[in-house]
Design a binder for these strands. Structure first.
Lengths: 97, 97
DNA sequence: AAGTATGATAACATATTCGTTATCATCCGT
DNA sequence: ACGGATGATAACGAATATGTTATCATACTT
């Protein structure tokens, strides 16, 4: 029997028929941003529950954000980042790393 | 007749009974962030309608954000900022200006 | 005066986030 | 094996953001 091809995430992301270049950039932006948020929490040695305590954002909400099941509002992101010692800034695209 | 005291924005913001220090910081953060968004649009010489065209975010939504009637989600903020040549970054609080 | 562009706003529907509470599977240490 | 901590998830309601369409007042230009 012929095996059905399993589509990879890359296959999907690189299909411009379904994911426009603008969408693609936004998706990678969000993944990178959330990744840094997770790193910041882990570097502080905090659990999701502990961060929930000091940030005011509930643990299920933090879990949803970290697993990319929701796109945060900027005030929520700020509430989570601030006790971790970080904030958000608008920067020129050229300065991107 | 005694005149009723009119409360100013500063009076309200500096009353820690109603606005906690954390809330205060968040509010000023949002005002500053949106201010930079407006500046970026105006520096490009774009109207809200033109920015709506190229960003995909509707003009009423942009007006609501710029007048602080709504707190954007990070994907909406990204959609608006990207065609203006800007993006968002997580930065340490110490680096804040 | 007439026409055009602008930002703001209204009203409503839809979509999404977040709170709340509870539970689950897994891992780790005892 | 037990208990504790962890991240993930479920279900539901409440709150909020955004889309959609239309309109308004104002400013500007001709």
């Amino acid at each position: 029997m012929s095996q059905k091809a399993i589509e990879t995430f890359s296959d999907y992301m690189n299909d411009e028929e379904r994911v426009s270049p603008a969408e693609k950039e936004r998706i990678y932006f969000e993944i990178s941003l959330i990744g840094k948020m997770i790193e910041a929490r882990e570097q502080k040695g905090l659990s999701q529950r502990e961060l929930a305590e000091i940030s005011g954002v509930k643990q299920p909400a933090i879990a949803r954000l970290e697993s990319l099941k929701a796109t945060p509002q900027i005030d929520t992101l700020f509430k989570v980042l601030h006790p971790l010692g970080y904030t958000i800034e608008i920067v020129p695209l050229a300065k991107e790393r």
